[in-house]
Simulated assay, not measured.
Amino acid sequence: MKIISMIPARYAASRFPGKLMQDLGGKTVILRTYQATVATNLFDDVIVVTDSTIIYNEIASNGGKVMMSKKEHDCGSDRIAEAVENLDIDVVINVQGDEPFTDKESLKKLIAVFKNDVDKQVDLASLMVHIKDEDEINNPNTVKVVIDQSDFALYFSRSPIPYPRAKNVGAKYYKHKGVYAFRKQAILDFYRLPMQTLEASEKLEQLRYLEYGKRIKMVETDVEGVEIDTPEDLERAKRLWK
Score class of each variant (00 low, 15 high):
V38D: 02
V46P: 01
A60D: 13
Y56G: 07
V66S: 05
V48L: 05
T37E: 05
T53V: 12
S61D: 15
S69E: 02
I55D: 07
K65Y: 14
G64R: 01
D51S: 13
M68H: 04
A60P: 04
I59D: 08
D45C: 05
Y34P: 00
V38L: 09
A36M: 07
G63D: 10
T33W: 11
T33Q: 14
Y34W: 01
M68S: 05
G63K: 05
A36S: 13
D44F: 08
I55M: 08
T53R: 12
A39D: 13
I59F: 03
I59L: 05
I47R: 10
Y56K: 14
M67Q: 09
N57M: 06
K65G: 11
T50M: 02
K65T: 15
I47G: 04
V48I: 12
S52G: 07
T33A: 13
I54M: 14
S52T: 06
V48R: 02
V66P: 03
G64C: 05
D51C: 10
N62A: 10
D44M: 07
Y34F: 08
V49A: 00
D44Q: 06
T53Q: 11
I55H: 08
N62Q: 13
A39Y: 02
V66I: 12
D51A: 11
Y34S: 00
D51L: 09
T50N: 05
N62H: 15
S69F: 01
I54K: 15
D44H: 11
L42Y: 13
M68L: 15
Q35R: 14
I59V: 13
D44S: 12
T40C: 08
S69V: 05
T53C: 02
G64K: 01
V66H: 02
Y34V: 00
V66K: 03
N57Y: 02
N57A: 02
D51T: 14
S69M: 07
T40H: 11
Y34M: 00
M68I: 06
I59N: 09
T50L: 04
I54A: 15
Y34Q: 03
Y56W: 14
V66R: 04
M67S: 07
I47Y: 08
D51H: 11
V48M: 05
Y56C: 02
S52P: 06
V48K: 01
Q35C: 04
D45P: 05
K65H: 15
D44P: 04
V49Q: 00
F43K: 08
F43G: 09
D45N: 14
T40L: 08
G63T: 07
N57H: 11
M68C: 04
F43E: 10
A60K: 15
I47T: 15
I55Y: 10
L42W: 12
I59H: 06
I47H: 00
G64M: 04
D45I: 08
M68N: 01
Y34L: 00
Q35V: 05
T33N: 14
V46R: 03
F43C: 08
I55N: 05
A36I: 01
S69C: 08
M68A: 04
I59G: 06
D51W: 04
D45Q: 13
I55G: 10
D51I: 07
T40F: 08
G63R: 06
V46D: 00
